[in-house]
Simulated assay, not measured.
Amino acid sequence: MVPPDPHSHDHHGQGHAHAHGPASPHPAQAAPWSILRMPVVSRLGAALAVSACLWTVVWLATR
């Protein structure tokens, strides 16, 4: 079996390989969703919901 080329790799099974030097970063990709684009009220609501779920897990684990 031939070892893979360290400079040419497939990302997330997309089927296309690309090459770049080890010092050059990957180009920016458009994000389909970003928490930074959410309004502040929505971000706070999401944070409270996640916090409530985590506290529920803690509460259930200590019962």
Results as ranks from 00 to 15, higher is better:
residue 1 M to E: 10
residue 1 M to W: 08
residue 1 M to S: 10
residue 2 V to T: 14
residue 4 P to F: 02
residue 4 P to I: 00
residue 6 P to H: 03
residue 7 H to I: 03
residue 8 S to L: 03
residue 8 S to A: 05
residue 9 H to S: 11
residue 10 D to I: 01
residue 10 D to P: 00
residue 11 H to F: 04
residue 14 Q to R: 12
residue 14 Q to M: 09
residue 15 G to H: 04
residue 15 G to D: 09
residue 15 G to V: 01
residue 16 H to D: 00
residue 16 H to P: 02
residue 17 A to S: 07
residue 17 A to L: 12
residue 18 H to S: 07
residue 18 H to F: 05
residue 18 H to A: 05
residue 19 A to C: 06
residue 19 A to R: 14
residue 19 A to S: 10
residue 19 A to E: 04
residue 20 H to Y: 00
residue 21 G to T: 01
residue 22 P to E: 06
residue 23 A to G: 13
residue 25 P to V: 02
residue 25 P to C: 02
residue 26 H to I: 04
residue 27 P to E: 06
residue 28 A to D: 10
residue 28 A to C: 08
residue 29 Q to Y: 04
residue 30 A to I: 06
residue 30 A to M: 04
residue 31 A to C: 07
residue 34 S to Q: 12
residue 34 S to N: 14
residue 35 I to D: 13
residue 36 L to W: 04
residue 36 L to R: 14
residue 37 R to T: 11
residue 38 M to E: 15
residue 38 M to N: 09
residue 39 P to R: 08
residue 39 P to G: 13
residue 40 V to L: 13
residue 40 V to Y: 12
residue 41 V to S: 07
residue 41 V to W: 10
residue 41 V to K: 06
residue 41 V to D: 06
residue 42 S to N: 15
residue 42 S to R: 15
residue 43 R to K: 11
residue 43 R to Q: 11
residue 43 R to W: 04
residue 43 R to I: 05
residue 43 R to F: 03
residue 43 R to L: 02
residue 45 G to M: 06
residue 45 G to P: 02
residue 46 A to M: 10
residue 46 A to N: 07
residue 48 L to A: 12
residue 50 V to L: 12
residue 51 S to G: 15
residue 51 S to R: 14
residue 52 A to V: 13
residue 52 A to D: 12
residue 53 C to G: 15
residue 56 T to P: 01
residue 56 T to Q: 13
residue 57 V to Q: 07
residue 58 V to K: 04
residue 58 V to I: 12
residue 59 W to I: 08
residue 59 W to Q: 11
residue 59 W to K: 10
residue 60 L to N: 05
residue 61 A to K: 11
